[in-house]
Simulated scan of single mutants.
Amino acid sequence: MDTASARTANLERVSKTDWPRVRLHVVTGKGGTGKSTVAAALALALASTGKRVLLCEVEGRQGIAQLFDVPPLPYEERRIAAGLPSPDGGQPGEVHALHIDAESAFLEYLSMYYKLGRAGKALDRFGVIEFATTIAPGVRDVLLTGKVFEAAKTQRRKGTSSKDRLGYDAIVLDAPPTGRITQFLNVNGELAGLAKVGPVKAQADTVMTLFRSPQTAVHLVTVLEEMPVQETADGIAELHAADLPVGGVIVNLVRPRDLDAEDLTAITDDTVDHAAIATELASAGVTPGAGLVSGLLAEARDHAERRALEDSQRALVNEMGTKVYELGRIAGGLDLGALYELAGSLREQGLA
């Protein structure tokens, strides 16, 4: 079987997913929730069924390069990893990456639509592009989102960041934080006072056809803490108000449940048998010296309080009216193996 036939066969084996029609997965979240990590894991999970996946970033942090331990990415699509192995033994797909910056996107735009090759680079040398995107932030977002739209095409133009002109089966966008995501995606609204006609307005209109279609889903990453959960709820409300498609909520960095509900209640109510704990410590070869048992119980009470807080926040997340997914905290730090582990969890839960 040739490569093209194998890829087609793998795509026909796609496992059950909650988002079968989605091609553009936008991942956002409050800073510190791990949205870039989730975006990378989602890209690996999507590529497990033979899909060709593009992982994009637009914030200028080179987060993809750090996660995959590769050199800083230029404005050029590059293969960075194979997808998670297919559960049915099929050939995994590939993950490509693209670091999108407004200046490079503007030069590409000028070259594609106005044939300004050297002239466009001259503008860049004189700082005209930086000046234009600084005084009009809405234009910067149009350029960044426009590049995502261009990458989503099945056939690519010459002169773009893609060398082979092939399209992608799925795109994962590591997007700005939740507090700015609606503004970033709603480029029409941002341009309302800047451009009512012309090519920039036309491009914004075209981009919005994709962002508001069933091919797009905006997934929100949170942790079980009050501020991130509240920001997630606010973000969902803002996305709905702007008619942008809300995807799932990914609860990241979930702590393991080492104690059951009965034990937690006993710790909270201070009904734990201190003597029994001392006996168990002794049987394990640990001398229960003065203060050891009380110290352990103090830590247990802190854990119980933390668990109660997390459970209350989890209840709020479950009331948001979206699909909810959970990713556990990875012990020992984050590396490529951990990303594959997270990717497997997302696939098992139906996000990919």
Rank of each mutant, 00 (worst) to 15 (best):
A308I: 05
H303A: 13
P256S: 05
I250A: 06
D302L: 11
G285V: 03
R301C: 08
A308C: 03
D270H: 08
D258Q: 11
R255P: 00
L292A: 07
S283K: 14
G289R: 15
D260H: 00
S283N: 13
R301T: 14
A275G: 10
A298L: 13
N252A: 01
L259Q: 01
S294N: 12
L259K: 02
G295L: 08
I267T: 03
N252L: 00
I250W: 00
T265H: 11
R257A: 10
D263V: 14
A278E: 13
A282L: 13
P288S: 11
T271N: 06
D311Y: 01
G291Q: 08
L297R: 00
G289F: 11
L296Y: 05
G295R: 08
A298P: 01
D269C: 03
R306S: 08
D260Q: 00
E299C: 09
L253P: 00
D260M: 01
L296H: 06
L253Y: 10
D311F: 04
V254I: 03
T268D: 04
A278G: 08
A261C: 00
A266P: 01
E262H: 06
D269K: 12
D258W: 08
R257C: 04
G295I: 08
A284Q: 12
I250E: 04
R257V: 13
D311M: 13
T287E: 14
T271V: 12
D311A: 13
L253A: 15
H274T: 10
E310N: 05
R255W: 04
P256Q: 01
D273W: 01
I277S: 07
L281K: 10
A275W: 02
A300K: 03
A282F: 06
D260K: 02
R306V: 01
L259C: 04
D311E: 15
E280Y: 05
D258V: 13
T287C: 01
L253H: 11
A275T: 12
A278N: 08
